[in-house]
Design a protein around this nucleic acid. Structure first.
Lengths: 199, 199
DNA sequence: TCTCCATCGGAACGAAACGTTTCGTTGAAT
DNA sequence: ATTCAACGAAACGTTTCGTTCCGATGGAGA
């Protein structure tokens, strides 16, 4: 298994071979799924894609760049819009965890985080993505604020940061199978606080 | 710079040379600080420690094991005990971020998380540590619960998970310089919730 | 039509780090 | 005095990296 059936693709001469680029990206994703980040080498990707290593290095300057493009190709998880912040957050997290578990995007994202610890390009990309205002969590919270569901002096960025942090850590320590009840508890604490009443 | 002045240590013969073990652990920490996780190789550690590679492999089966021991040697950050959960949490996070920035422990912990993505030993160690009940955050929250400061039906594990997640993500995306005001906001949201009043 | 030339897959390269083996030396235990 | 485990050092074969060649392919422009 794991071998590609068709022979090497035709070269198209003076233009970039989009078939090769596609095959390389698909192979990179497949290698990540089958062998994990530990087995993710440029050589393995080239073999899997029936491509030459120089072809990969011509278009992606580093392993991090290839990882980043594989990550960006992932289809994003749906944004729930139930009109309730609590249901939106719980639904989003469950969708996200399921998506991360059932597709390769969890592996890809984990690998990107790992790569960012030794590659400046990946680190910059990750920081830029994490700090952006258009994250899914950020949108859910901004919508709730527009509905007046959360207090006016709440900083949506800080809340989004907290929710994203929860998701990241569960991805990194392989706890994506958290029961819905636990996720629901976490969201409830965030919405209603944890202080004892009467304080 | 970076060279060690003294000549090779004396061998002690038939017993484990604790001086060598100490020199290797110190060298591992130094290499991690000076060259980062990217430059952290067993060979570099052996050179820095004036030790032989077999000596390292004799006592640490993998790079992850060495990283783990370096991490465990780190002195832990103080646990504030002000009698106020809010002050304890803010103080702990500020202490932790400062400690991570000013010592090597931030680099070591980041490297351990990265290594856990490709090494099963590191992954197990990390999951065990993260899931343990005796984390610092967990202790702060358990104490607050004993004081009756938080509601009785609150699950301390979930709260600790949330706070630790916030710290992890800020470490991983190099945002340990978060202003105290932001950290204070986050803790306030967690304690008091974010819902608009009157709901 | 014909020549140019960027791109292709493939083979090979040097450098670096891996993990292992072998060597001669050291010094505590017997 | 002898034994023996651990030491530092050096060398080994392997893997992956990133690069450099090569012949072949096929679109673009003369």
């Amino acid at each position: 298994m794991g071998e590609i059936a068709d022979p090497a693709r035709k070269s198209i001469g003076a233009r970039r071979n989009l078939d090769s680029a596609e095959a390389i990206l698909e192979a990179a994703e497949a290698v990540l799924i089958e062998a994990g980040y530990a087995g993710f080498s440029i050589e393995a990707v080239a073999r899997r894609a029936r491509a030459g290593k120089p072809t990969i290095y011509r278009w992606w300057p580093s392993k991090a760049a290839l990882l980043l493009e594989v990550y960006q190709r992932q289809k994003r998880v749906d944004l729930p819009d139930t009109g309730s912040l609590q249901e939106d957050l719980v639904g989003f997290l469950i969708n996200l965890f399921t998506h991360w578990r059932q597709t390769s995007s969890g592996s890809v994202f984990k690998s990107l985080i790992a790569e960012a610890q030794s590659d400046e390009t990946a680190a910059a990309a990750l920081a830029g993505y994490a700090g952006g205002r258009r994250t899914h969590t950020g949108q859910i919270i901004e919508r709730a604020k527009a509905r007046g569901e959360i207090a006016g002096d709440i900083d949506p960025g800080v809340v989004a940061d907290l929710v994203a942090s929860y998701a990241w850590r569960h991805l990194l320590i392989n706890r994506l199978d958290e029961p819905e009840a636990t996720i629901r508890k976490m969201v409830r604490y965030l919405l209603q606080g944890i202080e004892a009443p009467g304080r």
